[in-house]
Design a protein around this nucleic acid. Structure first.
Lengths: 235, 235
DNA sequence: ACCGCGGCTCAGAATCAGCTGAGAGACCGT
DNA sequence: ACGGTCTCTCAGCTGATTCTGAGCCGCGGT
């Protein structure tokens, strides 16, 4: 999941005309062992698909030349069946977005959180049986989190989580035992433009603990002055 | 980590306009076998990156010309993906700094302790798989300290340490057998502007000993009139 | 063996980080 | 529009951590 040795997890093309966003995404993806290329408009996206042959495209629907849907249409015309994860503004009309999920494609609304993006990418890749589509279940101790069904179990018992709780737990579970700083957690679990009070994190840790500890000992350990870590209590 | 044999550990560019700070950092880094260059403002930093090709940049966000974030932005624009460790004042609003940990970049707030800085540098380099990114585990006798999980074990047993205890032990373990003077220890483990009673050190040595000696013989030896050393008791 | 300095340890004060409950406001589906 | 759910803010509380101080101990030199 994190060892970087050349070839990596798969090739992903990121298409967005806002450099900041394209950066955030490529950095996060590279860090997760994908090979990444970027394009800033529809025309170069089409060209990059031909040359780079990505296994997935992250495609902003809002581009300076062609819009994302048009890019997708032209790809399909050429019988390119590479899956697409669309990035849409929150106010994109529903009917434009609907239909995307029919083809196995999917979409994420801006602003998104990195965890959400990664989870969606994994889902799409899995659906298409491509490289990078690893097993959908994360496990730690007696905890189990299934990305496909979004179900969480502890010690056999189902646990209902809200969206944010789920993303937080998923991030922790994808880095078991490692101490994650508040900054890292906020960056990955909250939307990339979140600028509020960093103390939300504590609130959500508290929520998660309450739900998880109904079925066993504390697994989310606080590391004072640093952050949190998933650990089986040593004593 | 400390043997000096010419080539060194990697190249680091230190950018800070306060000469004292830049000095403290460069000296510490050189002592740890890094090749170091310094720059005092954003413009010369950008130039130094091009010429010196550092593997990491320690970058104060408060610079006389461009601020650190701007320097970073321009580097990314040029597709320079050298990792950056930002130095920020304590009152820098969190949200300006966040987003950094996405790219594997990180930040340390002033005033920091040298040990903390070194630990962060090691983490970032490890994350980028560059030279200097050694294993995250320090070992001495039956002691084991893992920087990534922040776990300390002696003879298999987990040991809970507070922040200061951890930094102190880490410093001792990164210079095994060597006698470290009180001055050196205070300079490395406490924040560089620490002005309190130097006897805190004794208190913390005492705390550490108590925790470590629950699982084996004394490893932190007193060298009267000088300081302390990590040694396996000869007798 | 004794003395004095340096070091050790303990107890307590002050500070600080993190936990949690309550509640406002946004958002969703009906 | 309504009720429920979710997210985020706020503030008081609690317990941990850091540092100080004082008294005791013991090493090492004479």
């Amino acid at each position: 999941m994190s060892k970087s040795n050349g070839t990596g997890n798969g090739r992903i093309l990121v298409v967005d005309d806002e450099p900041n966003i394209a950066d955030v995404i490529s950095i996060a993806l590279r860090y997760n062992d994908f090979e990444v290329e970027t394009a800033a408009d529809g025309a170069s996206a089409l060209q990059a698909v031909a040359e780079f042959r990505p296994q997935l495209i992250v495609l902003d629907v809002m581009l300076p030349d062609l819009d994302g849907f048009e890019v997708a249409r032209r790809l399909r015309e050429r019988a390119e069946d590479v899956p697409i994860l669309f990035l849409t503004a929150k106010d994109t009309t529903e009917d434009k977005v609907r239909g995307l999920t029919l083809g196995g494609d999917d979409y994420v609304t801006k602003p998104f959180s990195v965890e959400e993006l990664l989870a969606r990418i994994a889902t799409v890749l899995r659906r298409f049986g491509r490289a990078g589509g690893e097993a959908s279940v994360l496990r730690f101790a007696d905890l189990e989190l299934d990305d496909e069904t979004r179900e969480v179990h502890r010690d056999g018992a189902a646990i209902e989580l809200t969206d944010t709780e789920y993303r937080l737990l998923r991030y922790l579970m994808s880095h078991p035992r490692r101490v994650l700083t508040r900054g890292q957690i906020l960056d990955h679990v909250w939307e990339y433009d979140f600028a509020g009070d960093a103390r939300v994190l504590e609130t959500y840790v508290s929520y998660l603990r309450k739900k998880l500890e109904a079925h066993g000992p504390r697994l989310i350990q606080t590391v004072r002055g640093v952050g949190y870590a998933l650990r089986v209590p040593s004593s």
